[in-house]
Design a protein around this nucleic acid. Structure first.
Lengths: 295, 295, 295
DNA sequence: ATAGGTTTTGTCAAGCTTTTGTACAT
DNA sequence: ATGTACAAAAGCTTGACAAAACCTAT
């Protein structure tokens, strides 16, 4: 036979019924074929290439356009084994962003349903929701997202996360009390942190946005939690409360999350700073308190 | 399951053999049918309505006068779906109050689960959740409930109601945009109102607490809702926004809910006041906009 | 997202018999399709879209107007039935049964999504999934359900429950090792039991159907669980293993769940019997081991 | 039942862009 | 062999229109 089946373009053309020009166009435009080259630069095709051109022609006959037909022909042998069932996080994030940008709640919800069926809460948070939120924040700062979009998106995501949170107060694990400082309305990060802790077996008592320190005090007194977490985006909310917070820190293991987490005064008073990604911080907290021993 | 409004009057006519004019007359005269309306004002009937018209025709064929026939047809399905309420609402309310007062999330959640299994959303709202919230407000004013309790309870109830709200943006009925005025953080009543409207076939676009008027404007421009509902507990939040709100009222049918609903200035500008219980007000809105027809 | 985007509008038109203009109008007016776009902006449709257009055309042929037909076609796969009238467990159970009987996975999944948004895992299990399963078993015994239906239904429910189970090995709470005895293929009850324990803060190590006792022994030796739960529907599976099970019971706190739970021999050896509803038994286990103290 | 006005929906057109097979010059 | 060009086919968006189906009110 033809050696081990090395074809030049004319022969490939004859066997497949596709003109050489077109074969080159398909190569250039869709990367359909990636022939070896002879020393003189001639294209050298393998029998697999004949096959692939055949698949391409089949899809064309089915009515598909060239670009799509080529994409499928390529996928046919690359992905033969691993059908990419896994949803690529970036793709999901983009689609989520698109749906929310257009104020299309049903689509956003359907998307989240699909994702949740495939993925842990941790992954949902750290790969999709949290990156999306920080991206949205950036776009908002650059003036590319409107207040309306930001508002709409967070209200839907809040609803969704609270749905996942149902029953997080139940169980036997260590307990955390979670609250936003007075004046702080951004609770999404805190909810995410609660969910991450919950996934690690903790019990959550959640007070929500804009919680008076007195409230936190009262609830903590009753629950004797293993950790009290307060969240604030700006140090301005923390400063006027320093005395109360120090007092609280004397009675309970206290942590500060969000943008204002790194507060030297409080760290000196033994308050744990949780400035980063809620999921990562949840891991850190679990590790720390595990070492510290229970009770 | 079956509750959707899906047939227009022509199709209902074809399926029942009753002329559209007559169907409208029966609706006007005897209230035989109470179809949803499309945003343009078209009547939308459910499969149950086909059934009911059939019953009516049966009675007519038996020689009954139209008025009696209609009365019987109406009675027939009122009795058909008698959801037996096993749980005494007050008892549930008390138990809910007790669980939440003690910061016992698991018990509260379990209780709500049990209630939901036995009762419609309407009943849950008007017999349990709303009375509980107003009672809690009263106790709080009298100093008998702490901020902590109020905070904890609303955060759990919010999560629960938002869970029920899932999918409320989808469907066919008229659309309502719901938002709290800037500065307003109490969103529970508004969510309840949204759920009540939803149970009446409406589609909800929910913006949540503390929404800039600009946001409401933008979203309303996109969705062209049949009604925009703003919520505020205090008139102080309304006063500074009067010009914007008047402008909004010129472009959309506008309503004001919550404690600040009765604002003479705005009522003069054609803004609907919804000061009362969300479920009752939802009924009123449905009735009003039905009469008003579209636009 | 939508599987693959593969068809351009002309081809979709040919396959569905709907003109491209009309397809675009349906997209614009009702959001019926949400095709991907090529980099140049061409619409790319998936095979699922062909299906959806078919559903739409079916509704049109039934006499529905386009807006309503589209809404129904959308609802078919997005799910979220429109008015959340009530979540009466029997109603949900019936609808679930109906969807599964017809092998309509999307509807079943959508229904489960909706219920999960409104209700705790505990309630989902004890009010819906478990009753449904036992009902299915009965019907099967009476020859009213086919093997195919039984198979289809349990595979979907298993998938769903395992989805909820994701991450259940994580955490700090007491640990349970769960396994079906050799020969036992019914694992749904055991999974439900695991979920119920998980909701109570336990950590789960799940071995699944048809697990050799030796495997259980080995894993238990490694994890030192607070409880080992074996499941079997028939006593015939238990009898030949009595010696091994007694040995296992000497090394670990052991329980037997499922139809074969009440085995006098084993109870004498200190094996806990868990014959009932998984959720109730989970409660019992938690109460028992709590009293028993740590260790 | 009729009259007069509105909504809904399929279709079409104009003006412009993308895609793709083929052709030509280097 | 490569790179560029080109023109036909297929798409895209916007806007408009008219027939059919509905609405209210008299």
């Amino acid at each position: 036979m033809e050696g081990d089946g090395v074809l030049r373009i004319g022969e490939l053309s004859k066997r497949t019924g596709v003109s050489p020009e077109l074969l080159r166009a398909w190569e250039r435009r869709y990367g359909l074929l990636q022939p070896l080259r002879s020393s003189g630069g001639l294209r050298l095709y393998s029998p697999a290439d004949v096959e692939r051109v055949g698949v391409m022609r089949g899809h064309l006959a089915d009515g598909l356009a060239a670009a799509e037909a080529a994409a499928l022909a390529l996928r046919a042998d690359v992905g033969a084994a691993p059908p990419p069932v896994a949803l690529a996080p970036e793709a999901v994030r983009l689609e989520l962003a698109d749906a929310l940008d257009r104020f299309d709640e049903p689509r956003a919800q359907a998307l989240l349903d699909r994702v949740l069926a495939a993925v842990t809460v941790d992954t949902l948070l750290s790969e999709i929701v949290l990156p999306y939120l920080s991206e949205l924040g950036d776009r908002w700062e650059r003036g590319e997202a409107s207040v309306a979009q930001e508002h709409f998106a967070s209200s839907i995501i809040r609803g969704r996360l609270l749905g996942l949170a149902r029953g997080w107060g139940q169980g036997l694990g260590p307990t955390a009390v979670l609250a936003c400082l007075p004046g702080e309305q951004h609770d999404l990060g805190l909810i995410a942190f609660g969910l991450a802790l919950r996934a690690r077996g903790w019990r959550i008592v959640y007070l929500g946005a804009d919680s008076p320190v007195e409230t936190v005090e009262e609830i903590s007194a009753r629950h004797e939690p293993d950790l009290v977490v307060l969240s604030a985006t700006s140090d301005d909310l923390v400063a006027p409360l320093l005395p109360e917070l120090r007092a609280l820190a004397r009675r309970h293991r206290l942590a500060l999350a969000g943008g204002a987490a790194a507060n030297a005064d409080l760290e000196r008073a033994g308050v744990l700073a949780l400035p980063d990604d809620p999921v990562a911080e949840a891991d850190r907290v679990v590790a720390l308190l595990q070492d510290a021993g229970g009770e």
